[in-house]
């Protein structure tokens, strides 16, 4: 008895070739496949949602994956307390619009309880790891979606799409599981969890082209606006409650936008006149410097800053 599916190979035809998906459609399909795999195989997934463009794209992909049903998992925000108010507002509106549950892990609460200490440089991005792991443990999340992309950083470039984390949330870059074809192995033991990165293979330009194509709303600070800023570490820092100029730092008004949105105390703005999504697509395509290089003080600390943070359980 024959026991296999079988088929009759025929010759390649021109018509068949022309039906290939565009690169953006291929990336979208890959991401949706991964999101559905994780939802099917894990007990309790959650999606890291900061209101930043990558997490907004992730959430958009999730709505497409489960349409017309609701997105079947909560979103998790690790709040540094150093937020841009318009991003928090955007976060709350999005959660409301999609009928999602929002879990917040608060860096401020950990500092208030004396479980975390403020850093000398005032930056809170690296402090997110402890509240993140606490939220994962106390909510019993076994899979956490992130919007991390491999083109962001040389350590991220090395990470699997499904990345196993131990009891301490640590990533072991020297001992990753093989990841073969599109068969994702998410098996883990008690205490371990998995970080899932469905848009690993997207570039910054892909993200922006997708935002344009899908007409996705973002917090306004991604587009050019006038803002009071001062120069520090070769970046334009916004004047805000947690981001005050020193006496020698002159405050001026500039037309700027943000390429990434993070802790207000370490995220810089870039001078830009890109006021629409089309302008931004053109600007990103033409940019001669990377988004993290342009805007993140925390990644300039050392040559392996991201790797070190990830080993400790960071996103």
């Amino acid at each position: 008895m024959s026991t296999f599916l079988t088929e009759e190979p025929t010759q390649v035809t021109e018509a068949a070739v022309s039906t290939r998906l565009s690169s953006l459609d291929t990336l979208e399909s890959e991401a949706i496949h991964i999101i559905r795999e994780v939802v099917a195989e894990f007990e309790k997934p959650a999606l890291l949602f900061s209101g930043g463009k990558d997490s907004v794209v992730m959430l958009h992909l999730a709505t497409k994956a489960f349409w017309p049903g609701k997105v079947p998992f909560p979103v998790l925000h690790v709040d540094t307390g150093h937020n841009f108010p318009e991003v928090i507002d955007f976060r709350d509106r999005t959660v409301e619009r999609l009928g999602l549950k929002l879990v917040v892990g608060s860096v401020q609460e950990f500092i208030d309880r004396g479980e975390l200490a403020e850093r000398a440089d005032g930056t809170r991005n690296p402090l997110q790891t402890v509240p993140l792991l606490d939220a994962i443990q106390s909510n019993k999340f076994d899979a956490v979606f992130g919007g991390g992309r491999r083109d962001e950083d040389k350590a991220r470039a090395k990470e699997r799409i499904l990345s196993l984390r131990d009891e301490f949330g640590q990533w072991d870059p020297r001992n990753q599981r093989p990841e073969l074809w599109n068969l994702y192995n998410g098996r883990h033991t008690v205490g371990q969890h998995v970080r899932a990165f469905p848009i690993s293979n997207w570039t910054e330009l892909d993200v922006w082209r997708y935002i344009e194509r899908e007409n996705i709303e973002l917090p306004g600070l991604y587009y050019a606006h006038d803002r009071e800023v001062f120069a520090r570490d070769g970046m334009w820092r916004a004047v805000g409650e947690v981001s005050q100029p020193r006496p020698d730092e002159e405050v001026i008004t500039k037309t700027v936008r943000y390429r990434t949105v993070g802790d207000m105390s370490c995220t810089g703005a870039v001078e830009s006149a890109a006021a629409t999504v089309r302008d931004v697509v053109i600007e990103v395509a033409a940019s001669t410097i990377t988004e993290r290089g342009a805007t993140r003080a925390d990644d300039r600390i050392s040559e392996a800053a991201m790797e070190d943070r990830k080993k400790d359980g960071y996103f």
């Binding site: 088929e7 390649v12 559905r36 017309p68 619009r97």
Partner: peptide, 23 residues
């Protein structure tokens, strides 16, 4: 693409049962 045989492993069943996406 010359392999014309359609194959589709089912990942999950979408069945909102009233829990439709509010958006």
């Amino acid at each position: 693409s010359h392999l014309e045989s359609f194959r589709f492993p089912v990942q999950l069943v979408v069945r909102p049962q009233g829990a439709l996406a509010p958006d």
